[in-house]
């Protein structure tokens, strides 16, 4: 329904999970919430709870131990949902791609809709990525992107 799409784009709620990351992107994600950047002006709220969220923001790549957690969070989110991979580690594991404990980028575990590059990704880029994901949510019209 049109009204849902319209509201979806204006109210993207986020859950953030910091996987095998150096914290750089995670901290920049937090910075995006704060006065200079202020994501709430776009209706973006960091809910911290997968069941309330529309968008999963991933920082850091997937490793053997956290892959289960990433999947778990993703499947707890009700559709429609989208995944934003923030930073090089979440996109492809970056400099760590041949470490013994790494699986690779987040897309090895769950489907990713938006890739935000950078090491560390800048807050502006993170906001842009989230808004792009919100557009995808609105376009999907209820089926849910990044579903199965």
């Amino acid at each position: 329904m049109g009204v849902y799409r319209w509201a979806r784009q204006r109210s993207p709620w986020i859950v953030h999970f910091n996987a095998a990351s150096c914290n750089g992107c995670a901290i920049e994600f937090f910075t995006a919430m704060t006065p200079i950047y202020d994501t709430e002006r776009f209706g973006i709220i960091n809910t911290g709870n997968p069941k309330h969220a529309d968008i999963l923001v991933m920082t850091g790549g997937a490793n053997h131990r956290n892959a289960r957690v990433i999947k778990n969070i993703f499947w707890q989110m009700p559709a429609p949902k989208a995944v934003v991979a923030v930073g090089v580690c979440a996109c492809s594991a970056g400099i760590f791609h041949d470490c013994y404990n790494m699986l690779g980028g987040v897309d090895k575990v769950i489907p990713v809709d938006v890739y935000v590059p950078g090491c560390a990704a800048r807050p502006e880029a993170i906001i842009e990525g989230i808004l792009r994901a919100a557009e995808l949510l609105a376009e999907s019209g209820g089926e849910g992107v990044g579903g199965d």
Partner: peptide, 8 residues
């Protein structure tokens, strides 16, 4: 522990 262990 181990959720961030990469093997640096």
């Amino acid at each position: 522990l181990g959720y961030v262990h990469r093997g640096l």
